[in-house]
Structures are given as structure tokens and as C-alpha cells.
């Protein structure tokens, strides 16, 4: 694992991730998750859907970052992930974290990405940072696969007061799946952006939209 990937996966990395729950807060508000046993399938489902999509694009972005791709390629990659993110609220959340990642890291490759889009999607920013640091697509893919789970897991501890050891055990149990997801992403890292896979989770899309609406009318503690 490349140290740039470790930095990005660290919850202390100042890229704005701490305020995002990945749909978990809305699921909690609706009574869909209230214990460790409900959290397990939420995390597993998120990893195989949103996590897989993020891993695919992080892997492709790392591939692009390693070969110092041009503005047009970054724009295309970003647009293709936009097309695979039907929920406007999720797009906003992803772009907020992508912008946060760029803010926290500075590198010439990232200037090219920022020239293509100043608020790139989060997986693309992560992949670009790893690739620019000469990390591998696998490092980037594994990072976002892990973040797809660790963010909501931490939110569950904060919102529900769950036992942090029990929650961490759930994250640990998903480690083999994270590697499977990352390996899948790596196989597509050099694929034309238009032909990249498009795994989806309609449930998470709907939770993100509901969260966005509720955050304007009632209390929501997370940005997504």
C-alpha cells in the first residue's frame, strides 16, 4: 500500500470526509439501521455498489495520474462518473470531498485535474493524488473501497452510540470484500472512460435525496 493512499484513507486527513455519512444518517433517521446487526448489511451493500463504483473510477484516475493525462481526459473521466451518479445530492457530496482533497494536497498533476474541473468527484481526486505520487491503481481503488465503509461506520458510532469495537469488527470482516472490489477495479483501470462499469445502488441514491430534503427542513448532522 502506497503511503499516499494511507494518508487519504486516514480519518485525520483534512479533506472534509468527517461530515459525510454516506446515507447512514438518513437510514438511521428512518429506523432502518439501529444496531450493529443492521449496520453490517448496510456496509456490505454500500461496499459492493457505491464502493465498487468509486473504486473503478479511483483506479482509472490513478492510471491517468501515473501517465500525467491531459485536461480532456480528466474532464471525460469526471463526466462519466457524473453520468453514473444519478442523485444530485450524491454528486454534490462527492464533489465537496473531491474539492476538499485537492485543497489538502498540492501537486502538478492535480493542477491539470483542477483545470478540467475545480470540484472533481472524490474518487477521481483520490485516484489522481495516488497516481501523481506514483502509487498504483490498486492503492487508489482499495482506499476508496475502504472509505466507502469506514465513513458510514464512524457515523454510526457517532449517531447511535454503537460500541466502536463491535463496529470496527464489522469493518474488519469486510476486508476480503474490499480487496475483491479493488481487484475488479484494477482490471478496468486502463479502460476507456465511457466503457467503465456502472454498479449502482438505487436505495443509496434515494437515501441521499431524502437526506438532502430533510436537511433543509429538520435536523441533519451530516452533509450527506
Amino acid at each position: 500500500m502506497h503511503a499516499a493512499a494511507l494518508m487519504l484513507a486516514d480519518s485525520r486527513f483534512p479533506g472534509g470526509g468527517h461530515a459525510h455519512s454516506g446515507g447512514l444518517e438518513e437510514a438511521v433517521a428512518r429506523g432502518l439501521v439501529h444496531s450493529e446487526s443492521d449496520l453490517a448489511p448496510f456496509l456490505a451493500g454500500r461496499l459492493r455498489t457505491a464502493g465498487e463504483l468509486a473504486a473503478v473510477f479511483a483506479g482509472a484516475a490513478a492510471h491517468a495520474g501515473r501517465r500525467d493525462a491531459g485536461v480532456d481526459h480528466w474532464r471525460l473521466l469526471d463526466a462519466e462518473l457524473d453520468a453514473r451518479t444519478p442523485s444530485p445530492a450524491q454528486r454534490t457530496a462527492s464533489r465537496a470531498q473531491g474539492r476538499g482533497t485537492l485543497r489538502a494536497v498540492s501537486h502538478l498533476v492535480l493542477d491539470t485535474l483542477a483545470a478540467a474541473t475545480p470540484r472533481p468527484h472524490h474518487p477521481i481526486a483520490v485516484g489522481a493524488v495516488v497516481g501523481a505520487s506514483e502509487g498504483a491503481p490498486a492503492d487508489a481503488a482499495l482506499t476508496v473501497a475502504y472509505l466507502a465503509v469506514s465513513g458510514p461506520a464512524s457515523a454510526a458510532v457517532r449517531l447511535l452510540g454503537l460500541d466502536p469495537f463491535a463496529v470496527n469488527a464489522l469493518v474488519m470482516r469486510l476486508i476480503p470484500v474490499m480487496h475483491t472490489v479493488a481487484e475488479y477495479a484494477v482490471r478496468h483501470a486502463g479502460t476507456d472512460p465511457a466503457d467503465l462499469p456502472a454498479p449502482a445502488a438505487v436505495g443509496l441514491d434515494l437515501l441521499a435525496e431524502a437526506h438532502d430534503r430533510h436537511s433543509q427542513k429538520e435536523v441533519r448532522l451530516f452533509a450527506s
Partner: peptide, 13 residues
């Protein structure tokens, strides 16, 4: 929104 951590949003991140 600060994800339940107001100090994080003004200091660490």
C-alpha cells in the same frame, strides 16, 4: 454540517 464534531470542522478539517 459538522458530522457531530463541531471542533473538527473549525480546527482539524
Amino acid at each position: 454540517q459538522t458530522g457531530c464534531c463541531p471542533h473538527t470542522a473549525i480546527r482539524d478539517d
